[in-house]
């Protein structure tokens, strides 16, 4: 699920961008025609997505009993949330996770610039290899990774053992578990980032490289002075995707960590706490307050990213 949520989330970034450059005069539509096109989808989105958010907001001010029956309790859930030490820890966990997955972006830029080299053979094969993890089922690969990380018979620790290194119990040791989960996140998103950045690369006019070559610029220099700057829009796009999906981290934790995991406090995300409170502990009012916090954080982050993008994204 995480991998899939990447794309939609990302779109919002582009949304604001595109809305910014709203197209001029297309007032060709008359009367009720536009509504015929729009109403089915907008109504559905309203019912299935907007209404739940409104409800969540309402429930965040209530105590919701195990067997239903809501009671208005004002700000109690929020007061409790700000006193709850697991909340800041989980935000920190989410940040660390996101930073690790963000490391996949420079990797993707380097790999894309290799794959998109003129006349490179097997380029299609390479793209396929890197893209396959993106289309795998998270619930399925989660189990595979659990085995790979297994402290006793997993291949990673066996490999480390060849060099005399005693590997940790990756998914159940505080600190390592978050790293292990984030590595899988990176693995799953790398192919997507690579394809987006490859597409961006192919948009860079070849003439620029040829000119640079004539000036005697090395490949490395071309990479840093042409490729990277002209790729910043694509990089910005995948960054937003990564950050937003980072804040939606849930499935991997669920599949890989198991219950009664010692490392959970140092690994769990905000969404995981939401889920835990809402569905395992049946404390839905409190969960709703956490849900609202998630909404606020994501909105702030996105706004922040758009504010700073002007500083480093080159729109030619």
């Amino acid at each position: 699920m995480k991998a899939q949520t990447l794309t939609p989330a990302s779109k919002s970034g582009r949304a604001a961008q595109a809305t910014g450059e709203r197209r001029k005069g297309k007032s060709k539509s008359v009367g009720w025609w536009p509504w015929l096109f729009v109403v089915p989808t907008v109504a559905g989105i309203g019912v299935f997505y907007l209404w739940p958010i409104v409800q969540t907001f309402y429930y965040s001010f209530t105590k919701w009993g195990v067997f239903g029956g809501t009671k208005f309790i004002g700000l109690d859930n929020y007061v409790r949330m700000f006193a709850d030490s697991t909340i800041p820890q989980s935000i920190l966990n989410t940040l660390i996770y996101t930073v690790v997955v963000l490391l996949g972006i420079p990797i993707a830029v380097i790999l894309a610039s290799l794959i998109e080299r003129p006349g490179l053979r097997f380029a299609a094969l390479y793209r396929t290899l890197y893209f396959i993890p993106y289309i795998t089922m998270p619930a399925a690969v989660g189990i595979v990774w659990r085995l790979i990380y297994n402290g006793d018979f997993g291949p990673i620790n066996w490999f480390l053992g060849l060099f005399g290194i005693q590997g940790p119990y990756w998914t159940s040791t505080p600190g390592f578990a978050l790293l292990a989960v984030a590595t899988v996140g990176l693995w799953m998103s790398l192919g997507f980032n690579l394809i987006i950045i490859s597409a961006g690369l192919r948009e860079i006019p070849r003439e620029l490289f040829e000119a640079a070559e004539m000036d005697g610029a090395s490949r490395v220099r071309q990479f840093f002075s042409i490729t990277v700057p002209l790729l910043t829009p694509s990089i910005f796009f995948v960054t937003i995707v990564t950050v937003i999906s980072g804040f939606q981290l849930f499935d991997l934790l669920y599949v890989m960590m198991g219950k009664a995991n010692l490392a959970m406090p140092q690994t769990q995300s905000l969404v995981y706490i939401f889920y835990n409170q809402a569905f395992l502990q049946n404390d839905k009012g409190y969960a709703a307050a956490i849900g609202i916090l998630i909404l606020v954080i994501i909105a702030l982050l996105t706004a922040f990213q758009f504010r700073i993008q002007k500083r480093w994204v080159n729109y030619v």
């Binding site: 699920m1 949520t5 939609p8 989330a9 779109k11 919002s12 949304a15 604001a16 809305t19 729009v38 907008v42 989105i45 299935f48 997505y49 907007l50 209404w51 739940p52 958010i53 409800q55 969540t56 937003i244 804040f247 939606q248 849930f250 969404v271 939401f274 889920y275 809402a278 569905f279 839905k284 849900g291 998630i294 909404l295 994501i298 909105a299 996105t302």
Partner: peptide, 19 residues
């Protein structure tokens, strides 16, 4: 309407589950 619809893209799907 567009702005509201787009903001939904960012919301984690778990939040919609119960409603």
């Amino acid at each position: 309407i567009l702005a509201i619809v787009l903001s939904i893209i960012m919301v984690p799907s778990q939040l919609f589950l119960i409603p």
